[in-house]
Design a protein around this nucleic acid. Sequence first.
RNA 1: GCCGAGGUGGCGGAACUGGCAGACGCGUAUGCCUUAGGAGCAUAUGCCGUAAGGUGUGAGGGUUCAAAUCCCUCCCUCGGCACCA
Length: 799
Amino acid sequence: MEYNHKEVEKKWQDYWEKNNSYLTKEDSKNPKFYVLDMFPYPSGEGLHVGHPKGYVATDIIARVKRAQGFNVLHPMGWDAFGLPAENYAIKTGVHPEIITEKNVSNIKRQMKMIGLSYDWSREINTTDPEYYKWTQWIFLKLYENGLAYKKLLPINWCPSCKTGLANEEVVDGKCERCGTETTKKDIEQWVLKITAYADKLLEGLNDIDWPEKIKEMQKNWIGRSEGWEIKFSINDTKEVSVFTTRIDTLFGCTYLVLAPEHPLVNELQIENKEEVLEYINKAKNKSERERISEVKDKTGVELKGVKVINPINGKEIKAYVADYVLFNYGTGAVMAVPAHDERDFDFANKYELEIIEVIKGENKKEGEVFIEDGVLFNSFDFDNLTSEEGREKIGEYLKKQGKAEKKVNYKLRDWVFSRQRYWGEPIPIIHCSKCGMVTVPENELPLKLPYVEKYQPTGTGESPLAAISDWVNVKCPKCGGDAKRETNTMPQWAGSCWYYLRFLDNKNKEEIFNKEIEKKWMPVDLYVGGAEHAVLHLLYSRFWHKFMYDIGVVSTKEPFYKLRNIGLILAPDGQKMSKSKGNVISPDVIVDEFGADTLRAYEMFMGPFDQAIQWNEQGVKGVNRFLSKAWDIIVSCKDNKTSSTEVIAMVHKLNKKVSDDLSKMKFNTPIAFFMEFFNSISEKKDEFGKDEIERVLKLLSPFTPHLCEELWSVLGNKNSILLEKWPEEDLSLIKEEKVMMIVQVDGKVRERIEIEIDTPKEEVQKIVLSNERLKKWIEGKEIKEVFFVENKLINICVA
RNA sequence: GCCGAGGUGGCGGAACUGGCAGACGCGUAUGCCUUAGGAGCAUAUGCCGUAAGGUGUGAGGGUUCAAAUCCCUCCCUCGGCACCA
């Protein structure tokens, strides 16, 4: 009986489909388990072998949990708005909607081909008006709660995609999507006030089981720092505020620096105004990359004739404009303490500015800047205080005079939320000349994306929607007068901010989802996806979720309780798989040649789940060999009635190891255990009986469901193996009577002996000392000490 | 520079709470089978050594009867952040 993967896999996939085997029951009384994959963008290339790795892992978990009696929710959907479909549409003239549909059906075919156990009745698509209706609804809630506002501000602009971008979408000064260098552009933008949730987003990290790496990335991105805001007087008439975390170094402040964009520069009387304006202009025209690459070389211009007073000692100091000070952090102005800050030190050296040391410490090295905390000196009444005390005392001292205030600053910026592109959710806002901004009434949602012939981005800062006059021109819902629709669309991240919630109740027409259902299923128990979304999707969706929690829409503070990252599958050449490099391996090819079960088992066996590993065709063959070996063995044993006690012990041991490792999200070692098991059982085929065969099949079935279903029926079972309970090992059957004991002399392994289990130390020692082979090492020497670990090891020290 | 993860055979990787390092797979070698093999099966396989034995988990030191595992110093690789005051 040869295993024919094509026939068998088709047979069972049809069976599962016909029997609705993976439907989640809403009325189940069993405890819930929500296991979710990051839903894909339905690209035209379909899946490559890297994509299923995460899907297979969650599929295994879902199958085990079902067998363990959980009511499992395991859905899948499509994150289908975004640039690729739109760009393709521009090139070919085929509407993005049609392309999306085509791509979805291809990827769905691939997912079914791999045997993934999704509940397809819950499928969602972010471009479906019945879905984005609620994305727009959430936007309106954000707007009503003052968390969405429109503002003119210099934003990151991608000249190739012709749209504004969020900070999170600019990587190394380049557009995250297309790699083009971004520029700055002043456009009126919709912005979401994610900064209002900075502290909540930080605190929430303590309550969730996420990889440390992702938590750290989010913490750094939010970048909370505590310090003081201090007012310096300028020219006796004006004031400028600076933010500092090191108010303890205030006596060492020898100049003040304004960012080029600082508005005060225009207001001040400056003797060398022309020179200053020229510098500012040059700084503004620098691209993000130029600015980054010039970090070492700090430039600036003195504001001549401007007098600044250090509030702590009344000392007059100079003022500069320099682009090493960022306008969008803190107050856009900085007090410079060259003795205790590297940047200020570099700048002061270049422009020969005064350097006054005010902090001393043990680690201070000659000729280097001392940036650590230490003890204050040159600081009058505050001398001999520690930095920490100094901060408190100096801060409070200035606070009493109204010159300083405690302040918390964040690196996190508000989320630039509008895109000047076609293929996204329309923002449901109407601009009325009388009433100002008016929301589209909820009962008019969804505000459908109009069908257009031309999707080309305009590059003018307006979206293509602006050209559709019969869509743009509307009556104001408030006053009935002439008004215009907002023509910007939402970014591609909008739909993915809340999709995990719509799976719970995806056909609900009345509300975003039923509250009771939400309470029952949330939070997501296990969320699996790539780490590249650390400060994009994973931050944005936490923000929306926390907002929805605050307005009573959801019942949990966090959306995803446990997160695990997938390690990439690299091409055999060690590079990332990509169409342009021509190194993509399609699952279609692997499944055709070896079958879905081989693909699944190999992807799990490759190595640790969260680690990047190269694809190796030989490895696929190895796993395939193992599966046919397992098939042959079980087929040849199918009529065996009972097992030997030894085989029973082996099977229960296997059971324990597989269960233990799966609970730790380890998938490579269980496969290895199965291989080991079948290697040993091949010599004991006669002792491998029905009950044990069935137990092994139940354990293996989450990994290779088709093969196991088939063998299950070969054994004469009429029902699907999916209905079987996950087996629990019986530890009493594993207990062995004899064990191998390691015998060491002076810590070196010299012999191994078989003894009765639980033999006491004295007896083992007696056996060991009479052992012929060990005499060589012990004879004539004095035994100093004997260490004994029960059932494991005895170490005789003679040295 | 800062943060995070990691460094084990020719390769991917195992190793519980400190207790046989190298499970499992790939590759390689030899043999069998075959008209043939980039198929299948069997055996071997960390390194040095004919062997006894020695040696070995990035480097060096330490703790311990015993260290891949714990501690200290350093090096390297990958990922992220990066003028954030």
